[in-house]
Design a protein around this nucleic acid. Structure first.
Lengths: 84, 84
DNA sequence: TTGTGACTTCTAGTCCGTT
DNA sequence: AAACGGACTAGAAGTCACA
């Protein structure tokens, strides 16, 4: 059948981009907590549209603001950048 | 009872600040690889003085540049923000 | 409720140095 | 090799109107 070329046996190590990782974790964790973007933004002390931009990978967020999001979601900072 | 007199000074502290974590990991990994600040900066495509500032927690680095440093040091992005 | 483009303000990041 | 400073430019922060 051969559906498509698979990433064969040993190729784990191409990590998605940092923005991608952050975006996915943000969306996932926010959903788990049943927060709207607005609620998360409020908890983090950020603007709603800024969070939306980050979740869409349109913005290059800084470390201080990543930290605010981690605190708002009550997770370690590093976990926001781990592959899910 | 007198619990103990802790240095109540600063950090709200479940975890060191994000800048602190990044700085420590940067210094440690750079030392392990025997890189100078200039060499690391060059590998990451950043400026020497900027890396120095980040290692001293004086600058709020952006995610894209954290990613560049992770690539230069050949570690996962998240590992730069993990407690050592 | 969320996505997006555009805009202004302010700082991240560079580049020239000296200590 | 690293800390530190000044002056500059690129780009993140923050906000808005509207889809």
């Amino acid at each position: 059948m051969k559906p498509e070329s698979q990433p064969t046996t040993t190729t784990p190590n191409v990590e998605p981009s940092a923005r991608e990782l952050l975006a996915r974790n943000l969306v996932r964790l926010r959903a788990e907590r049943r927060f709207s973007q607005e609620e998360l933004a409020y908890e983090a002390g950020l603007h709603r549209t800024f969070v939306a931009h980050v979740e869409r990978r349109m913005r290059n967020i800084s470390l201080d603001n990543i930290e605010k999001l981690a605190l708002a979601l009550d997770v370690p900072i590093a976990s926001l950048l781990e592959p899910s």
